[in-house]
Design a protein around this nucleic acid. Structure first.
Length: 513
RNA sequence: GGAGAUAUCGUCUAGCGGUCUAGGACGCCGCCCUCUCACGGCGGAAACCAGGGUUCGAGUCCCUGUUUCUCUACCA
């Protein structure tokens, strides 16, 4: 019988969710949905010193915004809880004890200072089969001394006892079999005294096993410790149900070297987090994709294609299409440099294709930011305005720069365009145009256009000069959609008022030499 | 230093021994459309890390080197 597909996304609540983490969550989600399986969200808060208030809520909100659904988790519940590691202490104690009883783990009493001293003393010091005899632990010390130490309340940790010189094979669905020798592994700390909690490694294996996780899809940074995890499954006797591994490549800096970091976003001017975040301690602010005007579908599409491809030339995918098409086979094994320009393009594509009324709703807050009283405009008006300019914008916030003139009269006129299009005879032409439009049916774009074009042709005027001067009075500069689409939306009264204001206020450039 | 991973246009990538004079997309450049700016259409510049093999034939397989990335904590 096929094993049910169960995957997990397991972030630490140590700050805002990094965009690379978002991609890992997305791939897990796609994989789960595709196989009709379960997506688990597990909070890995086993480092009490790095806990950041609000981080867990941030993770939930970010995933929800992106449409990455969770089947089991702290909020969602489920039959395998608790889903927060700090609430599973009893489990970890029990399984740690099991390893100790089986002789596969041991107590170590070395203080951080002692360990540091050893590292100074011996080049490439590693706590392992070769060196543990010279350290203070339950393997090297006499039993009565160990007991005395424990009874006296001395601090201890539990370390995994790794047998040297064993070839450990990690089956990775993306990279094939990765073999490494156990001698290069150290006796990892499984349980730490600092906060009476397990380390990632122990908690991870115990939880994945207990939660019946079938596939571990995580970042490449875990590949070097994957052999340790395999060894842990073996130590517990859980090899038969050990999950399959997929180690995804990392997201890299757009330029230079190394993996993508918050600093890069600040430096290059793009968000590295899904949502805005203010660090509760330092007060430091980080910008997010949502607040930067990105559409969640665009972020999902962009992220999906950063490390995965459908095998053909298609690039635009809805979440449902991604669920259908995603496959590990078509994932890249190479780290991907984060290409912000491509991200902008994705957003542009989605912005252009979104329904005008839907886009209008997203645009309203931006309008208010710019002091527009929404009560002055109908939803229909805003939707039309947005529909006319959306092909020119990358972000919702860009819409303002493109559509501002639909909500306010020009406050100034572009000097560059005046120089090019506002000739001495222009005011007279504009007066004639105003007279012409006074009788036009402005609601019909084609009629208005025919009327004006005929007037231009029959008088032998220059179309470009007339139209651009007209545009200058209405928009303030030479930009924007089709002129008669603009006038249709503004209406005759407003159009004529702007023509009038333009004639009065635009000063032709001095006829200097 | 050690270990592992990795390697096609500037970037994301297609390619799974012949169909590759290497395809698509972003970005860049040019042309067309045009009252402006976009959108759209057309076109252009731009890549198989290096050296050895295997093979009738290698971007595709093998080896070596190199590159880049990650890991090397009582962090995840």
């Amino acid at each position: 019988m096929e094993r049910r597909v169960r995957v997990r996304f397991a972030p630490s609540p140590t700050g805002p969710l990094h965009i690379g983490g978002v991609r890992t969550a997305l791939y897990n989600y796609l994989f789960a949905r595709q196989h009709g399986g379960d997506m688990i969200l597990r909070i890995e808060d086993t480092d009490s010193t790095r806990f950041v208030p609000g981080a867990e809520e941030y993770i939930n909100e970010a995933l929800q915004w992106l449409g990455i659904g969770i089947d089991e988790g702290v909020r969602e519940g489920g039959n395998y809880g608790p889903y927060k590691q700090s609430e599973r202490r009893d489990l970890y104690r029990k399984y740690t004890q099991q390893l100790i009883d089986a002789g596969k783990a041991y107590y170590a009493f070395d203080t951080p200072e002692e360990l540091e001293a050893k590292r100074q003393e011996i080049k490439n010091f590693q706590y392992d089969a070769r060196t543990r005899g010279m350290m203070r632990n339950s393997l090297s010390l006499p039993a009565d001394e160990v007991k005395a130490l424990m009874d006296s309340g001395a601090k201890w940790v539990v370390r995994f006892r790794i047998e040297p010189d064993q070839d450990v094979v990690v089956h990775d669905l993306l990279r094939g079999d990765v073999t490494i020798n156990s001698s290069i592994l150290d006796d990892k700390v499984l349980y730490k005294s600092a906060d009476d909690l397990p380390t990632y490694h122990l908690a991870n294996i115990v939880d994945d096993h207990l939660m019946e996780v079938s596939h571990v899809i995580r970042g490449e940074e875990w590949l070097p410790s994957a052999p340790l995890h395999v060894l842990l499954y073996q130590a517990f006797g859980w090899e038969d149900t050990m999950p399959a591994f997929v180690h995804l490549p990392l997201l890299l800096k757009p330029d230079g070297k190394g993996k993508l970091s918050k600093r890069d976003g600040d430096r290059l001017g793009f968000p590295v987090f899904p949502l805005d975040w203010t660090d509760p301690k330092s007060g430091e602010r980080s910008s997010g994709y949502r607040e930067a005007g990105y559409l969640p579908q665009a972020v999902v599409n962009f992220l999906a294609l950063l490390g995965w491809n459908p095998g053909d030339d298609r690039e635009i995918f809805s979440m449902d299409e991604l669920i259908k098409e995603f496959s590990i086979d078509h994932c890249s094994r190479k780290g991907a440099k984060f290409d912000f320009e491509k991200g902008k393009w994705f957003n542009h594509e989605y912005l252009m294709n979104i329904d005008d009324h839907e886009l209008a709703q997203l645009f309203k807050p931006v309008l208010e930011q710019h002091g527009v009283n929404l009560a002055d405009y109908s939803d229909e008006y805003i939707a039309s305005a947005v529909g006319l300019v959306k092909s020119r914008a990358n972000f919702v916030s860009d819409l303002w720069n493109q559509a501002d003139f639909f909500f306010q009269r020009p406050t100034s006129y572009s000097e560059k365009d005046i120089r090019k299009r506002w000739k001495p005879e222009t005011p007279e032409l504009m007066r004639q145009l105003a007279g012409l439009l006074d009788n036009a049916d402005m609601d019909d774009v084609e009629d208005t256009e025919n009327l004006v074009m005929n007037w231009i042709d029959s008088n032998g005027y220059h179309k470009g000069n007339v139209m651009n001067a007209f545009r200058l009075t209405v928009v303030g500069e030479c930009r924007g959609p089709h002129m008669f689409e603009i006038t249709r939306l503004l209406g005759r009264e407003e159009t004529l008022a702007r023509l009038d204001a333009g004639i009065k206020n635009i000063q032709a450039p001095a006829q200097d030499a």
